[in-house]
């Protein structure tokens, strides 16, 4: 028994050889120690049954433990050698990968989704409406006077009768107010049409995102808070925001919201016409006449609404100089934003 334990101790010494062994030496070592016929440890294990029960237990435990150690050491060394083999067979790993085509959403779609998602976080669901509209929905229910200059045919595309291509997404405010009771919180993305010739900063067709919130007790403070929160979430948490007076027939008070210029940070540059501010959206408290036109009690309910142009926002945020790039659909342009906007 003593000699067996000594043999095991001697064998244990050979564990140290394994981490240095190359592939061939490793194979030899394996045969020498664990080989089915002539392995030294196999041999010792083979002698166990002949031992007395008392020493059998002691030697057996030691031999089996050593066997596990050797197996683990051989496995580890084999993995190392395999891993090393990959690196040393002369493969140039800087060669280009095999790729598939990468698809992507249009930048404007991504910006629309980003904006709508921020408003979703503020409780707004997504609503839509038709692009061919009646004058009632597009103008009159929104408190445009019958002879408002916006009704000039030169500004809108008419389809015959009182039908026209909507000039803003605001008619969906009316459709929503007519169909659903307050509280209402919706954002309305969609395509709108104006009779503007296509040039670097105008397109006869563009996207708009409308928003509407109507409930009891909604005030100017809620209006400012919601839109300022949007701006800080969309641009940056420390973005400066300002509201200033404006005029829309369907809001009163009306306001434009500016954010600090994203190009110069507010110092003044060509993009912001040296003002340090960028106009982001037109907005205001819903005009009581609009609520009344939809059969909503304007004493009990108040609300706010806004509209913004995702193309312009995308252009200023991403430094795109010409709106036509958004419609040309050059795959090199589209691919630039296929991986996202950041």
């Amino acid at each position: 028994m003593r000699d067996l334990l000594a043999a095991l101790a001697e064998l244990r010494e050979r564990l140290k050889e394994i981490p240095q062994a190359d592939e061939r030496r490793l194979s030899d070592l394996k045969t020498e120690i664990l080989g089915r016929k002539a392995g030294a440890l196999t041999h010792i294990l083979g002698r166990l049954p002949k031992l007395e029960p008392s020493s059998k237990k002691e030697v057996g435990a030691a031999a089996n433990a050593l066997k596990r150690e050797f197996e683990a050491a051989f496995d580890a060394r084999e993995r190392d050698l395999k891993r090393a083999a990959g690196a040393v067979t002369g493969v140039d790993l800087t060669m280009p990968a095999r790729a598939g085509w990468r698809g992507g959403l249009h930048l404007v779609t991504q910006v629309v989704d980003e904006i709508c998602d921020i408003f979703r976080g503020l409780g707004f669901t997504r609503a839509v409406g038709p692009e061919a509209e009646t004058e009632r929905y597009n103008f009159f229910a929104l408190n445009f006077p019958k002879d408002h200059p916006a009704l000039d045919a030169q500004d809108s595309f008419y389809l015959g009768g009182d039908l026209l291509l909507r000039t803003h997404t605001s008619p969906v405010q009316i459709r929503t107010l007519e169909r659903y009771p307050p509280p209402i919180r919706v954002v309305i993305p969609g395509q709108v049409y104006r009779r503007d010739p296509f040039d670097a900063s105008h397109s006869p067709v563009f996207q708009q995102i409308e928003g509407l919130a109507v409930d009891e007790g909604i005030s100017f403070v809620d209006f400012k808070a919601t839109l300022a929160t949007f701006a800080r979430r969309f641009f940056a948490p420390d973005t400066r925001v300002r509201f200033r007076p404006s005029f829309f027939p369907f809001t009163e008070p009306s306001a434009e919201m500016d954010v600090q210029c994203q190009i110069c940070g507010g110092a003044g540059c060509a993009t912001c016409k040296q003002t340090g501010w960028m106009e982001i959206l037109g907005s205001g408290m819903v005009h009581p006449a609009v609520l009344e036109n939809c059969g909503v009690d304007s004493e009990r309910y108040t609300g706010f609404a806004w509209g913004m142009g995702p193309e312009r926002i995308a252009m200023s945020r991403h430094g795109i100089p010409d709106i036509r790039l958004l419609f040309e659909s050059d795959v090199r342009f589209l691919a630039q934003f296929a991986g996202g906007t950041r």
Binding site: L122, G123, F124, T125, A127, T176, Y180, P181, P182, P183, I184, R185, V186, A213, D215, I218, V221, D222, K224, A225, T226, A228, T229, V241
Partner: peptide, 11 residues
């Protein structure tokens, strides 16, 4: 311009 609680909409 501090956000205040609001009721979720019906739409």
């Amino acid at each position: 311009d501090e956000l205040r609680a609001y009721r979720p909409g019906t739409v």
